Computed example of a mutant assay.
Amino acid sequence: MTTDPRPLFARAAEQAAALIGTVRAEQLGRPTPCSEFDVRTLLSHLTGGARRIAVVAEGGDAVAAPPFAEDVSDDGWAVAYDEARIRAVKAWAGDDRLDAVVRLPFGEMPGRAALSAYVMETVTHTWDLSEALGRPLALDPELAEFALTVGHRMLPDEQRDERTPFGSARPAPEGAGAYDRLAAWLGREPLSRA
């Protein structure tokens, strides 16, 4: 993968932050297409993921970084995610991190690949959140196309097993847009069809 994922990560994280800013307290218990997460748990995972990818760029141990933000109150998700997003974007600013080998919970890889994986994760979970909230904002299709390319490369369907955090690929509806194709590749289904 030769694309510099930093501008895409920044856009994906900004898109997630805008959507997180729309969440109301009464929506926190809603289900999401990520069946084990309600909205509150998804916000915790998005925030924890942004913190984790910042730790990676800062040279820390991503395996030790918690995948969930357990220290955020229900009214603090927008601020907590924004702080994590800004920290991650700043941490990845140096070119040296792109080719350095980093360690993630799912293996070692060049920083470029690791950050690309987090673009995919951020974009996918943003779609999950959007579905749970009734699609309040338009999502950037270019980000979904990039995430889908990463998903095809890093998560071939035939290699997924019970440890893979995404389900088996599903067929996308005919004429599906980029987000619906991404969701289908990662085993998700829109809530309206689930």
Rank of each mutant, 00 (worst) to 15 (best):
T32V: 12
D38S: 09
R51K: 14
V39M: 09
E14H: 13
A114M: 07
D95V: 06
V63W: 00
H125S: 11
S73V: 08
A16D: 10
R97V: 15
F68S: 13
A17G: 15
V55H: 08
D82T: 15
D74L: 00
A13H: 01
P110L: 02
D71N: 09
A93N: 04
A113R: 14
G29R: 08
F37E: 06
P105W: 06
I86F: 00
I53Q: 13
A13R: 05
G21Q: 11
E58C: 06
V89E: 12
V39L: 12
R85F: 03
L28W: 05
G59Y: 02
D74Y: 01
E26Q: 14
A62S: 14
D61Y: 01
S35R: 15
A16Q: 08
F68H: 14
G49K: 05
L115P: 03
E83V: 14
V55Q: 11
D128C: 11
V79C: 02
H125P: 09
W92Q: 10
A57P: 01
G94E: 15
R30H: 14
A91N: 06
E58K: 06
G21T: 08
T32W: 10
W92D: 08
A78F: 00
R112T: 04
Y118R: 09
A88C: 07
L19F: 09
V23N: 11
W92V: 08
G60F: 03
E83P: 00
E83F: 00
L28G: 09
R51A: 14
V123Y: 10
T32S: 15
D74Q: 01
T41H: 13
P67F: 05
A50K: 08
F9D: 09
F68N: 12
L8M: 12
L129T: 01
D99M: 07
P33V: 10
V72T: 15
D82N: 13
L46R: 09
W77D: 01
W127L: 13
G111R: 03
D71F: 01
Y118C: 06
L28R: 07
G59C: 04
L115H: 03
L129S: 03
D96W: 02
